[in-house]
């Protein structure tokens, strides 16, 4: 596991060095701060989806969850007129409920995770577009206090950059996830379930509960990230807010060493995977501004290379040991 994380870390460092060499904007405080903030936002989602991937499942509805809470918050506050605590509570409960529903359909009715969450992807965005009449939503100039949880920055003494709040949230989420996986019985059960669900079940583990919990964790973190995204940009368009975010999250998790066949996951790897993805996007903007439209293609190739390299590494080590 460490070998794997090390491999992706080396690639991450190389890409950072390369970008720094090719662009003098890359290391400017403003850019670094921005990068760290985006790593925070996407990292929270990636950790969420890594739980689902560990069970051998997938959650394609993340982007729509982001849309649901990200557009839902300004809609509830500004258009409907709810108070912030109520709006936040209800939105988070809604995404938890949706996560539970995914898990329930997958375990109780044996539906394919791919299909269940694909339908989720279509439904949640559709509902949000309907509710908001496809209007662009924002907080205007109000709610600055609330928005601090996403836009706030914690100064770092004499360093030229301040720590963006989303990154602070990511650190908290990552520590909790790490503790869960490493130190609780459930973490070990989850790992066993990912490797061999049948054997785990036969060992007296309540595998269905664990799977449902994984989808709930995933949905909750996506919903939470959605709130942060929307508070940060202060403008959300239901038709495209959070579009394709599930792919960024899944890609980061896979790059970080989560096998889509289940059973493997390391929080640190997922974090580095997320960082790699964001630095890559940053590099495309800074170094190849003319090729910005090729962003998806370039990212696609890098992920493919990453996965191929990973497979190659695995075989190399399997031969040696």
């Amino acid at each position: 596991m460490m070998k794997k994380t090390l491999g992706i870390f080396v690639v991450f460092v190389l890409i950072c060095l390369l970008t720094a060499a090719l662009s003098d904007v890359f290391l400017r405080p403003q850019n670094v701060e921005n990068l760290i903030m985006r790593i925070g936002l996407y990292g929270i989602m990636a950790i969420g989806v890594s739980f689902v991937i560990m069970t051998g499942g997938i959650d394609l509805s993340l982007g729509s969850m982001v849309c649901l809470t990200g557009c839902g918050l300004p809609w509830l506050l500004v258009k409907v007129g709810w108070s912030p605590p109520w709006a936040l509570l209800v939105l988070l409960l809604v995404v938890l409920g949706l996560g539970w529903t995914h898990g329930w359909m997958i375990t109780r009715w044996h539906l394919q995770p791919f299909i269940v969450t694909l339908c989720g992807l279509l439904i949640y965005r559709g509902v949000m577009r309907g509710l908001a009449a496809d209007q662009s939503l924002g907080f205007g100039t109000a709610y600055d206090g609330l928005r601090w949880i996403a836009t706030g920055k914690i100064p770092l003494g004499s360093l030229p950059i301040a720590l963006p709040m989303p990154f602070v949230w990511l650190v908290i989420v990552a520590l909790l996830a790490f503790g869960f996986l490493r130190y609780t019985v459930w973490g070990q059960h989850l790992l066993a379930l990912g490797y061999n669900e049948e054997a785990a079940k036969n060992s007296g583990i309540r595998t269905n509960r664990l799977i449902v919990a994984s989808y709930m964790i995933c949905a909750f973190l996506a919903g939470f990230a959605g709130l942060l995204f929307s508070m940060d940009v202060n403008s959300a368009q239901p038709s495209d807010f959070g579009n394709f975010y599930e792919l960024y999250a899944i890609a980061a998790a896979v790059l970080g060493g989560c096998s889509l066949r289940g059973g493997q996951g390391a929080v640190l790897g997922v974090l580095i995977g997320t960082a790699l993805m964001q630095v890559l996007r940053n590099m495309i903007v800074l170094v190849f501004p003319a090729q910005q439209n090729m962003e998806f293609a370039i990212i696609g190739f890098v992920i493919l290379l990453g996965v191929l390299g990973d497979e190659w590494f695995k075989r190399y080590f399997a031969k040696r040991s």
Binding site: A192, N196, E198, A199
Partner: peptide, 21 residues
């Protein structure tokens, strides 16, 4: 192999799996 063991996990992890809780 399929129903009784988590083959990729360690011997210790397999032995303790049912009694972890």
């Amino acid at each position: 192999k399929q129903q009784g063991l988590v083959l990729d996990a360690s011997v210790a992890d397999n032995l303790t799996l049912p009694s972890l809780t």
